[in-house]
Design a protein around this nucleic acid. Structure first.
Lengths: 345, 345
DNA sequence: CTGTTAGCGCCTTCAC
DNA sequence: GTGAAGGCGCTAACAG
């Protein structure tokens, strides 16, 4: 069943059917109605492939995330999808899994599908991605890309704002030995968070021993490892800030295993504010970086890039702020001398 | 840049290019090599739209989930995607959001994209979906569809197996007042879980007061509400089994708020075994229903449906088992009389 | 305002 | 084993 079938039954030309379906205003309402009647009766749905082929527009956006199983991303996918559907777009969801072979595959997939734009919300600076896509003039929006990549829009995140709040909050609670568990420092976003932490500490005159800076991988297991490492220190930290919520969850879990109570004996702060943070025990104090807002910005960026017929040579810059959300995983530092080593057998 | 361009440069016909690219074995290796050389040099990628149009195969599978933000699903999406990419398929991810308008949109999207098959892993018995799709002879695989829908494959889940284990585990811990927080009972899967609970209780001669059966919505908030309702009872349960992990997380969170300690004062068991369950505090004892396995079965079902030229008139039946995973959210029931009401002010 | 027509990029008979 | 040609379903000129 195709447009010709409809045309025949509605006794009009295929061109008219096409116009009616696409709601071209110049079509006679009478005819349009006749067309729609047949369309509805037959349950006709236009073939997007044919449409895409002739129009040169696939109406598909690539959405690149690190791993859909990381709770940070589903919210983004959800919002992005919402907007896409609303705007008549489909999404080609791609996970890079931090694997370069996989990433080449992803690029291939996106090009083969002739995506109309790509949002890379992956915090991994997947540069390889850029060139190939950019070559084909596909609108791109990134997060945290360092330098000004021409023609590529960028969502810049103000890590400093939220992280400073977190540091000051913890400091106000009289913590002085404050640890920071970072993500992989080769990721610009992870590096930026760590920098923001250091700067914020320096700002209030707290020094941060290098032993209190542990690099991990943004996973829960990483968080567990980090805490194990920290409590093995001669003088343990009384508070630990984490580069993301997953890490913080891992830290809390390890604290539980070690019999260290949060927040009484150890204050924990996360970053991202994934939905689950609120349901942790205790509910996690964390820095909010709105996933829905991020998705919204990315989507809009793409749409506006597309509607701009002459591609701006400087990709647009967008901003996303971060903010501390107080919950119950932080508390006043215990007075008295810092606890030495784990008291467990 | 298209197939003609390649043909010209490789000094062969477009037919040969097409054959080379599609690895038709009868093509002269010499020519094939020449073609591939040009393809690689130019970074040519075939246009899937054109391919789909002419072949009648989109190589896209629809994957319908309830909500990607429900942690149960990302794992499924991940595995399904893995297999899809491996098999040269793309995924059209669709969330139904339990909204019928939205669901019609989803059907439209899938038909417009001419998906080659649809996996409905949504536990919602979205019947509307079936007819329209089935009419177009799109292979379908469902979870827990009640009756035998012709031509539709079905993954049947053995809830009884895991839930019986859970009940017996809790009973062995000397609990007798055992509550069950179900999902929306209009969902076949939720109903089946509740039934499995009741049957398992009956089997060991434990009776279940209707006041201990609370229906909720499979969300964390629902879990919180459920526990609030349960502790308001004249005689509180000492253990609560939940229809899914999200609910269990909500229950634990509410217990925390109420100052009830898990597992000492209240044992909690979940269902699904989402990855997070292991990282809860305390780690959640739950019934495992493998998300990866589910995705794997669904994918294979679709592929095998497609490869079967003459569609079998009875959709195939698949099986997925469930199993209790012991962690630390259950403990011996406290001896002495059951606690009356909440002891909080 | 409507119809006719020429492709969009590719695959696939069919001759050779 | 290779090439020429037709057509997949639709849209976008261009005539009328």
């Amino acid at each position: 069943m195709d447009i010709r079938e409809i045309a025949k039954r509605a006794k009009v030309s295929t061109a008219t059917v096409s116009r009616a379906i696409n709601r071209v205003p110049t079509v006679d309402p009478q005819l349009a109605k006749r067309v729609w009647k047949v369309v509805d009766e037959l349950g006709y749905y236009p073939n997007t492939q044919a449409r895409a082929l002739v129009s040169g527009k696939s109406r598909i956006f690539g959405l690149v995330v690190s791993e859909i199983t990381n709770p940070f991303f589903p919210e983004i996918v959800h919002t992005f999808e919402e907007l896409a559907v609303q705007g008549g777009y489909e999404i080609l969801l791609v996970s890079t899994v931090h694997d370069s072979k996989r990433m080449r595959t992803s690029v291939r997939r996106m090009i083969e599908q002739r995506v109309d734009g790509v949002a890379v919300l992956t915090f991994g600076m997947e540069e390889l991605l850029v060139d190939d896509l950019h070559l084909r003039k596909v609108p791109l929006v990134f997060v945290d890309v360092g330098r000004d990549v021409p023609h590529v829009s960028n969502i810049r995140i103000d890590y400093q704002h939220g992280i400073r709040q977190a540091v000051q909050h913890v400091a106000a609670l009289r913590h002085t030995r404050i640890a920071f568990v970072s993500g992989p420092l080769r990721l610009p976003s992870a590096l930026a968070r760590k920098r923001a932490f250091e700067d914020s500490m320096a700002e209030i005159g707290l020094n941060v021993d290098s032993e209190l800076l542990v690099e991990q991988d943004h996973t829960m297991e990483g968080g567990m490892r980090a805490l194990r490492q920290l409590i093995a220190l001669p003088i343990c930290p009384t508070a630990v800030l984490c580069s993301n919520d997953m890490t913080a969850i891992g830290v809390m879990r390890e604290a539980y295993d070690q019999g260290i109570s949060v927040p009484q004996e150890l204050s924990v702060v996360g970053f991202d504010n994934i939905r689950l943070a609120e349901f942790m025990i205790p509910p996690l104090t964390t820095v909010d970086m709105s996933q829905t807002e991020l998705a919204r910005i990315a989507f809009k960026a793409l749409v506006s890039d597309i509607s701009r017929e002459t591609p701006a040579e400087h990709g647009t810059e967008y901003q996303l702020n971060t903010n501390l959300v107080l919950r119950r995983s932080t508390a006043l530092a215990q007075s008295g001398p810092p606890r030495h080593k784990s008291t467990k057998p």
